[in-house]
Amino acid sequence: MSDTVEVTTTSVPTTNYPPASFFMDIGKLVESVRKMSSPSVNYGYRKLRIFSGVQPVPPGEEEYETWMEQAMQALEEWDVPEAQKKQRITESLKGVAAEAIRNLKFSQESCTAYDYLRMLQDEFGRTEKATDLIFLFEHMFQRENEQLSEYIRRLNKMLYQIVLKKGIEARDMDQVRMKQILRGALSSDPIWIQLKTLQGGTSLQYSDLIKMVREEEAILEEKKKGSGFSFAAEVRTLNVSNGNSEVDQLKAQVSQLMQMLTLLSAGVKSPLEKVTSEPVPESTTQVVPIKKPSNICYNCGGVGHYRNTCPSPSNARGSYRPAGNYRGPQ
């Protein structure tokens, strides 16, 4: 009888470790929870400048429109809870502006950061209604010699006012802005033509739109500078070549007119033979002088004899006086 030994092998289980992305996700989750649990911690955000609503604006403070534009942009960028947004806005206010927010809190228990800005808009902003601002916005057109980028900035300022007045929603700003640009910009602007031909009528965001427009304006400015010198030289050449002949012709015409006026004032009936530049036949230019008779009778006025040999009876003195400076016998 033979002894048999049975050997059994046990498999060691292998451990599957999670990938590195798992730990990165866990780290992000912990960071977001930490931010939510401690909203009062300052994470290095750029504070808004002080606004008090006092006129004239004290040194170190912002005017209302400038402050409001910065506040609107900050609300879109701050990735913090609503309570912290309101705190950041409140810490940039003082004086009359801070009192306006305090009154809002008393009258409205649950209010948002946008409600703060709307309250400041009612207190210090434009007094027009939302419909009036929309009307003004739709009638804002690009001025002559105004760059398209400047026109877009003017539109954007008005858009912020309309959003604060609840005339449009903030998510519709890009579409409304692009629509007004296509309608109000100068059709002769080459950048307007490019915006007009965008595929599908795409409404660009403000950052992409202003970047594109400013780059195109810079290209056009460089082309203008590059072609300015040759164009000016060409204009000067044309003036020199054509100007002398025209000036000479004008001088000749003025000289002829002066001669004609001189001859007319002297009583000459036909001055053309002296002022015309073309040769005139000699027969037409010769003037036959009329010789006045010298033997005129001062008694009867006849010609061919004198008074002392006049066959007519003697007249009274002064009965006949010829034309001229004759004063009678001395």
Rank of each mutant, 00 (worst) to 15 (best):
S37W: 12
D189Q: 03
P190K: 05
D189M: 01
E31P: 01
P311V: 03
H305K: 02
Y326Q: 04
V30T: 06
Q180N: 10
R49N: 13
S188F: 06
G226F: 08
R49L: 08
L136F: 14
D79C: 04
T285M: 07
S2I: 08
A71M: 01
G302T: 01
R177L: 15
L264G: 09
S92R: 00
V254P: 02
T262Y: 01
Q108I: 11
E215L: 06
R118T: 04
T90H: 07
P289T: 09
G302H: 00
F229D: 13
G226L: 08
P281C: 06
Y298D: 11
L159N: 02
L198F: 13
E217L: 00
V268W: 01
Q161W: 09
E109F: 13
S32W: 09
A113Q: 03
T14R: 10
G125Q: 00
I193Y: 11
P313N: 09
V213I: 04
K211R: 12
G201A: 04
S92Q: 01
P81V: 02
T9M: 14
P281E: 13
V254G: 04
A233W: 10
A113G: 04
E146D: 09
L264I: 08
W78S: 00
S37D: 14
V12H: 07
T9I: 14
A316K: 11
R214W: 02
G125E: 02
I290V: 13
G301F: 00
E246F: 07
S52K: 05
M173V: 15
L75K: 01
L186V: 10
V303F: 03
T202H: 07
L104H: 07
R183M: 08
T237Y: 12
C300E: 04
S38H: 14
S265P: 02
G184R: 06
Q175N: 10
E62G: 00
P293N: 04
I168N: 06
D3Q: 14
I152H: 05
G243D: 01
E138Y: 11
T15V: 14
S187C: 06
T202M: 09
T112P: 02
R88M: 05
K291C: 07
S11Q: 12
E61V: 04
P279F: 05
K105A: 15
K35Q: 10
M178I: 06
E221F: 05
S40R: 15
A252D: 03
Q175M: 09
A74L: 09
A20K: 13
S32K: 15
E282L: 08
E282T: 12
Q121E: 14
K28I: 09
Q194D: 15
A316R: 11
E6A: 07
Q55W: 06
